[in-house]
Computed example of a mutant assay.
Amino acid sequence: MDAVVGWLLAPVMLALLALVALSLWELGLAIGERSGGIRGLVEADRRDRLASRARRAIDRADLLARIGPMLGLMGTLIPLGPGLAALASGHLDVLAQAVTVAFNTTVLGLSIGILGYLLGRLRRRWYDAAMAQLERRAQ
């Protein structure tokens, strides 16, 4: 079982790096939404388009907020098993490397989660305000 779990470390690290890139992409999209993308849909009275865009954007942010910390935790726990075994054998350099990987993946996972959470909260506020504005306009 140790070998199977050990094989997961590389995919977890690659997934974390991919989520970092996706987080930065989402941050850029959020800046675009705030600086005029949402306003353009409100001015064009595109309620259906606004609702579908909001749903997709918020779902992506929620995915980042949930998956990032989970992968960070996996990246923390996977190298600690071999690191602790190396400690028992007196190989402190292997333990030091395992702890370094564990801390790095934890920080990446939490950073992704924080950014995803913030983007989700901001987007909910922005899109709710835009939908309320469209509803007031319709009355």
Score class of each variant (00 low, 15 high):
62 D>A: 11
13 M>H: 07
130 A>D: 09
20 V>N: 07
55 R>F: 15
114 I>P: 01
132 A>T: 14
100 T>V: 05
46 R>F: 02
21 A>L: 10
96 A>Q: 12
15 A>H: 00
9 L>K: 09
9 L>G: 10
80 L>C: 05
60 R>N: 11
33 E>S: 07
17 L>Q: 04
43 E>P: 04
27 L>S: 11
17 L>R: 03
20 V>F: 04
132 A>I: 10
55 R>G: 12
14 L>T: 10
49 R>S: 06
48 D>V: 15
41 L>I: 09
11 P>I: 07
133 Q>T: 07
17 L>D: 06
25 W>P: 03
58 I>Y: 01
80 L>H: 04
56 R>S: 14
14 L>V: 15
19 L>V: 01
46 R>N: 00
56 R>L: 13
87 L>P: 00
42 V>Y: 03
31 I>S: 09
97 Q>I: 08
121 R>S: 09
120 G>L: 07
75 G>M: 05
80 L>M: 14
68 G>Y: 01
71 L>S: 00
53 R>K: 08
54 A>E: 03
79 P>L: 07
24 L>S: 03
8 L>E: 01
125 R>W: 10
49 R>T: 13
52 S>N: 04
29 L>C: 10
19 L>E: 00
89 S>N: 10
9 L>S: 08
94 V>G: 01
109 G>V: 13
48 D>P: 10
96 A>K: 04
106 T>N: 09
7 W>Q: 15
65 A>I: 03
130 A>M: 09
74 M>G: 02
44 A>T: 11
69 P>V: 00
12 V>Q: 03
78 I>C: 02
90 G>C: 13
59 D>R: 07
20 V>M: 09
72 G>A: 02
79 P>A: 10
137 R>Y: 14
36 G>V: 09
122 L>R: 15
71 L>R: 04
